[in-house]
Design a protein around this nucleic acid. Structure first.
Lengths: 96, 96
DNA sequence: GATATATTTAGAATGTTGGCTAAATATCTT
DNA sequence: AAGATATTTAGCCAACATTCTAAATATATC
């Protein structure tokens, strides 16, 4: 887990939002992408950054890639931190 | 406190190291800069980013600007987080 | 007030990032 | 195996970040 990668990954609001989405459960690339006004390839890039930071993990399930949070101690702290800074919402939670 | 500014500020290893240095007490711009192989103006830029993120505060004392951590709740969490990720050292602590 | 020291501001150079489109790959269905 | 759907890879470009040098500002000292 390269600390530099983690902080760089967190520097982007889109990626932080992806992490927050995954806090409520696993989601496919498409399900995540849907919530953003961003094309697939750009989303794919964000997934890659998060994977390299070891913050998420992707598993193929049929045609889709299902992403899940890597919940190690550090990443739990991170989740905590992100909750303090910006609580996640219930319904179609969206802000930043 | 703009969350986006905070995460961007933390994205740079030089700035994280500045924060860690200040965890042990206030330091002047020069004292901080001394520890890095980076010119004054570049350091000044980093101080600015940290100030805008409301993570540090600078007060003039004679010819020098003395910087100190802004220790609010969030920033304490941040310190905690950074300690987990990368404990600070005692003597001429350096690694980052 | 002239000179020295500490820091910042301004502006340029270079590298990185985040978005895009087009094309490739993988899987599923017919 | 042809076509549809989901995702990634490759390559491009504009915007932003990090560093630099030169010059400006602020304070201290002679």
């Amino acid at each position: 887990m390269a600390i530099d990668e983690v902080f760089k990954a967190l520097a982007d609001p889109t990626r932080r939002r992806i992490l927050r989405m995954l806090q409520s459960g696993d989601l496919s690339a498409g399900e995540i992408a849907q919530e953003f006004g961003i094309r697939g390839p750009s989303m794919s890039h964000h997934f890659n950054v998060l994977k390299h930071a070891d913050l998420i993990e992707g598993k193929r399930d049929g045609q889709q890639i299902v992403y899940s949070l890597n919940t190690t101690v550090v990443q739990d702290m991170l989740a905590m931190f992100m909750d303090v800074m910006q609580p996640k919402k219930e319904p179609t939670g969206e802000s930043q």
